[in-house]
Computed example of a mutant assay.
Amino acid sequence: MAVTRRQKEIIDFLESFVSRNGYSPSFEEIARAMGLKSLATVHKHVTNLEKKGLLDRVHNRSRSIDILPPGTRTRSSDRLPLAGRIAAGLPVETAENSETISLRDVVGNRDVFALEVKGDSMRDEHIINGDYVLVERARTARQGEIVVALVHGSETTLKRFYSEGNMIRLQPANTEMEPIFVPAAHVAIQGRVLGVLRKYR
Rank of each mutant, 00 (worst) to 15 (best):
Y132V: 14
H186I: 10
K44E: 13
G153L: 03
A87M: 03
A88G: 08
F27N: 13
N60G: 12
R6L: 12
E164W: 03
L197D: 06
L170D: 03
A31Q: 03
T74A: 13
N129G: 09
P91H: 07
R5P: 12
P91S: 07
A83W: 04
R104K: 13
T156H: 05
L80N: 09
S38N: 13
A2L: 15
L36G: 03
E116D: 11
P183S: 04
F161W: 03
D111L: 10
A114F: 12
T74W: 03
A185T: 14
R142V: 13
I168V: 15
V147F: 03
T41W: 01
P91I: 10
K37F: 14
V106W: 02
L82Q: 06
A185K: 14
I168C: 00
I30K: 06
L134R: 05
Q7Y: 05
V151R: 00
R160V: 06
I86F: 06
S76Q: 10
H186V: 11
E15N: 10
E93N: 11
A184F: 00
S26G: 10
G84S: 02
L14S: 00
H45M: 08
G35W: 05
T4E: 03
A83N: 10
G35N: 07
D131T: 09
T175D: 14
E125Y: 10
N60Q: 13
S26D: 06
L197A: 13
S77Q: 08
N129C: 12
S102T: 14
F13K: 06
R61W: 09
D120F: 01
R104D: 10
I86D: 01
H45I: 04
E116S: 15
E15I: 09
E145D: 08
K51N: 14
P25A: 08
F27M: 15
G165F: 04
R169D: 01
H126L: 15
V46H: 01
P25T: 05
T175M: 15
A173V: 01
G191N: 05
F17M: 04
P70L: 00
Q171W: 03
T4H: 02
V46K: 01
S163E: 14
A40M: 13
G53M: 02
D120I: 02
L115W: 07
E28A: 15
H186C: 11
D120V: 01
G22M: 06
R104P: 00
S64Y: 02
S98W: 12
V42C: 09
L194K: 06
K8Y: 07
I189W: 01
I168E: 01
P172T: 05
G119W: 02
G53R: 00
R63A: 01
R79H: 08
K37Q: 13
P179I: 06
G119L: 05
R198L: 07
I86A: 09
S19L: 11
A87W: 05
G191T: 11
H186R: 12
G191W: 04
A40P: 08
